[in-house]
Nucleic acid binder design. Sequence first.
DNA 1: AATAAAAAAAAA
Length: 898
Amino acid sequence: MHPDGLEFFWGKARPFPDEGTTGGPFMHPLLAHMLDVAAVAMLLPGSGNCGLDRRQLGLLVALHDIGKLIPAFQAMVETCWPEAVLGPFRAEHVQCRHDAAGLALMDLLVDGVLAPLFGNGSDGKRWLPSLKLQILRAVAGHHGQPASIVDKGVLTPDTIGHAQRVVAILLDVFRPPPIPRPGHDILRRLEWVLAGITIHADWIGSRREWFPYVQPEDVRDPSGYFWNHALPRAQAAIFRAGLGPMALAPFAGALRLFDHIREPSPVQALLEGTALPSGPVLAVIEDMTGSGKTEAALVLAHRLMAHGRGSGLFVALPTMATANAMYDRLAMAYRRLFQPSARPSLALAHGRARLDERFVAALVPDDGADAHLAARSMDETAEAYCAAWLGSESRRALMAQVGIGTIDQALMAVLPVRFATVRQAGLAGKILIVDECHAFDPYMRREMVALLHFHAAMGGSVILLSATLTHRVRQELTEAFRKGLGVSGPIPLSGTAYPLVTLVGKSGVEERPCAPRPGLARSIAVRRLADADAATGAVTEAAATGAAVAWIRNTVDEVIATARSLRAQGVEALVFHARFAMVDRLMIERDVLARFGKEGEGTERSAVLVASQVIEQSLDLDFDVLCTDLAPMDQLIQRAGRLRRHRRTARPVDQEELLVISPEPVADPDPRWIQRVLPGTAAVYRDPALLWRTARVLFRRGRIESPTGLRALIEETDDADAPDAVPEGLMAGSTDAMGKAYAAGAAADRNVLSFDAGYAAATALWEREARTPTRLEDVPYVTVRLAVMQDERLLPWAARADGSLACESERHRAWALSEVSVARYRLASCPPPAGLEAAVMAARAGWSRWEREAEDQVLLLVLQEMETGWRGTGRTETNQEIIIGYDQIYGLEIFRDQ
DNA sequence: AATAAAAAAAAA
Ligand SMILES: [Fe+3]
Ligand SMILES: [Fe+3]
């Protein structure tokens, strides 16, 4: 079918020639772009499972840019204006975004020229207009969010006529059989999947290196263009993006996957062989640190993949640092999930992934050479590999065969943030592994519920890794997954064992107790210390024996004050918290790991560390004596895990005892029960009754028995409804805190996307100005970047000590390493010191756009060396001048100016 | 009166 002038409409344009090149087309015809993107969608691995015939898929995806037919769009580049059809150039048109115009056009044509696309269902059911709209809005909303509904009046009869002819051409190219009317669930899934595939294909199909511009003449025979140009280019582009099909390796057990496993641990053995429910599976693995549950999860993931229940995996972690560490851990093993001939990408997905040197080194740019050849030449290297296209940003990283990232990257798939459907498409068909699930606050837990629902509804499996979860939370997560599977009726969980594996499928729920790994069982005595002075005494005494001592305090200010007073008494305390510039924090972390980690020995262990919650998770540390401020039970158990964790032949102190600073859990505490002993703690852990119950249970039992006693400790403190769970004096504070926690959960419920509501503008907060957060912060924080003056210009703090960071190519890393986070109520702005305005401007000019423009969010603090140390000035929210001190031993401190 | 840690942030 001849396009009769429609080939002159442009879809992509480049009004100015590239440097160093001559000629070449200045635009890519709209028809060509539509066919390019359709071809990509049809060939994308996984798109065959979307439920559509490839001809139907191609036609629908091609429609995504039909809105570009409107004169307002064509007029955006005057030199590309299709004069042959629209006459002499006119600049004035009714403005409308082309995604919205596209939706309006499709809606207008749905019962006209688009009618042959829709057929009756096998049961004779017919398409209703609202059902057809679900399909069309999925392809129309290709700018990251649902296209808005606009008045059809913006469409001129001419435009409508052009659109009819374009559809006729596409019908002639694809010749799709009618789509039988599907059931509601299938249609809903198709809507979300199609929205993701369309954008995914558009991103690949819009890359000029892979789809060079052609002349209008080249698309005069649209079908010929599709077969001879679009399809072959799409095929090559998919390979070059790193998205070619990857053959999976058959499952051959845990030992084949990991070199370091000589004998599978109990949980690994269980997941290696246990019978699995059919269909999508949720596995909740509750086990101790050191049980090998991460490897167990990968073993299960491989089993599921080998049985066709997943094409790849995504591992979600709570922090960027743990994600980086997981990347290193998987760099070798991930290839074994696939056939030796396959080139799967291992991608790191988080906001600072590009600052991770190992990951950047693994990126292999698409150099235009034959992708198959390039792959073969690298076959022998066992190291991690990532196609550059996938590694260039976090949304694409989710599409890699194996992705590792922050949980936030996955949660954004179920928030109304731009390109959420791309994230969904990345996760769809993958095994989703989520680590450290016990650490979720109410807001993240409710986001997780939404993610479980979505992933299950898309047919995906999930593995959750956790320390003990409360029964309530395990039930909540299980139900969310089953709801996503479309099965109704909660199944009450009854398991009380720990370790425990809960397997959830369409057919039901099974709870499998698991043996603890031999050697991990512990029994730790708990002793109460009445106040911080008693703790100072205990710490000083232990330090004198040469023991490795740690004191975990609940606030940074108390960490600093405690360390100062210990040092005044001659105890050289080390300080570790998060109010350091990242360089210094990393240096302290290295020092702490060298002393108290697995390799630490002899005199280097003889030290006292005063730390905030930074050592509560992830870091593998071992202290002879551990002292801690009272904290909620689950955190306290995590902290206790740092006591005598490794096997050591001799220790300076004989007792295995956790010292907990806590007021006595008397039967009738007054409202200031916790403040009197631990003033800062009340502000950090808001529910005083939870702290009181923790203290009561802990000191009544006098021991932490791991693993056998943990479930009881957790459940007993969690139960706020038990008689005398909330004593009179703490009622007000507790009610307030529980209200806030409930509100945070409700905020998440309001924010998340509803699978059942579909991809429509009105059903979620897509349009709001502030971006929907993945985490709620209690109080707002600002990022402070520290700098010093050197040779008339500002040098990032990190580059001052490490000259190699001073060079231009390390600029972004140097600034990132110079960052500290500070609560806004402490520090709100840093006006440039007199005379340095230009230098500050110049420094900010070298930052990325959002960093530069978010002037009240990212501050630049100039430090000057005084007799008293490094000092800078800033202002509070009420514009009071303050002095800021920075010290590599104590960190950042705020002094009020008098 | 005064609080940990943690993440995100450019399109097709
Ligand atoms: Fe577009
Ligand atoms: Fe497009």
